[in-house]
């Protein structure tokens, strides 16, 4: 085992860890917010929205994330240079950067998987509670924000840790679109030093530690939320 390269690359690895965490948190937050309407319209929405949400979930869940990412980065990204004047606009630095495509792809993916989970959770809230809320005279919006959504979120909480760990395990794909996350940092180290295994083993250990912390954090969170059984 050769670890001589490690001190030299610690800043790169820390920046990689930071980017991995940014990718994870931003995609979970954006995707999680998107998942609520995607789940809701499948339960109560008008049929065009219902069909649209269902089709979105089917597409996201039925195709590899790698293909979705490449479809956005290479496919959609290849259309932008054709737009006249775009190279001079303020958008160009964003449209050129693989990182934003990765955030978008991972958010859409999380929204697709979690939207399906939220659909089940909305259906799982007992009818009587919604009827009680309506009987008190709550508006549909209030029923949603005070009863339906909080109860649905409580139902998905036990599965959320697993979903987020799954999302963490998807983030290394970002290195295929030039993002210097942990996986990207590893690729740079390997190409600089011709050392293959040690960097891989190191980031594998880092991913395991992150997984451990996510699981622990959610166990704690779940105990904070009261639930009568």
């Amino acid at each position: 085992m050769n670890w001589e390269w490690l001190p030299h690359y610690i800043p790169l690895l820390i920046h990689g860890l930071y980017l991995t965490l940014v990718l994870l948190v931003s995609s979970v937050v954006i995707g999680g917010i998107m998942a609520v309407p995607i789940g809701l319209v499948q339960v109560t929405g008008p049929w065009p929205l219902k069909v649209l949400a269902k089709a979105f979930c089917t597409f996201i869940r039925g195709t590899p994330l790698l293909i979705q990412l490449w479809l956005l980065y290479y496919g959609v990204g290849s259309l932008f240079p054709g737009i006249p004047g775009i190279r001079d606009s303020f958008l160009w630095p964003i449209l050129r950067e693989g990182f934003y495509y990765a955030v978008l792809a991972f958010s859409l993916s999380f929204a697709g998987y979690e939207g399906e989970v939220m659909r089940g959770a909305f259906l799982g809230v007992p009818r009587g509670e919604l009827e009680a809320a309506r009987a008190i005279g709550m508006s549909p919006w209030k029923v949603l924000t005070r009863v339906w959504l909080p109860r649905a979120v409580r139902l998905v909480l036990p599965t959320l840790a697993g979903e987020i760990v799954g999302q963490l395990k998807s983030t290394p794909l970002a290195f295929t679109v030039t993002v210097m996350d942990l996986m990207g940092a590893r690729a740079k180290i390997s190409s600089d030093t011709y050392i293959m295994y040690e960097p891989l083993i190191l980031i594998a250990v880092i991913y395991m530690i992150l997984t451990f912390f996510i699981t622990r954090a959610f166990n704690y969170l779940e105990r904070l939320v009261p639930q009568r059984r």
Partner: peptide
């Protein structure tokens, strides 16, 4: 616990 991509390369 380890990402599939990392495992596959390892």
């Amino acid at each position: 616990a380890i990402p599939e991509l990392v495992l596959i390369m390892l």
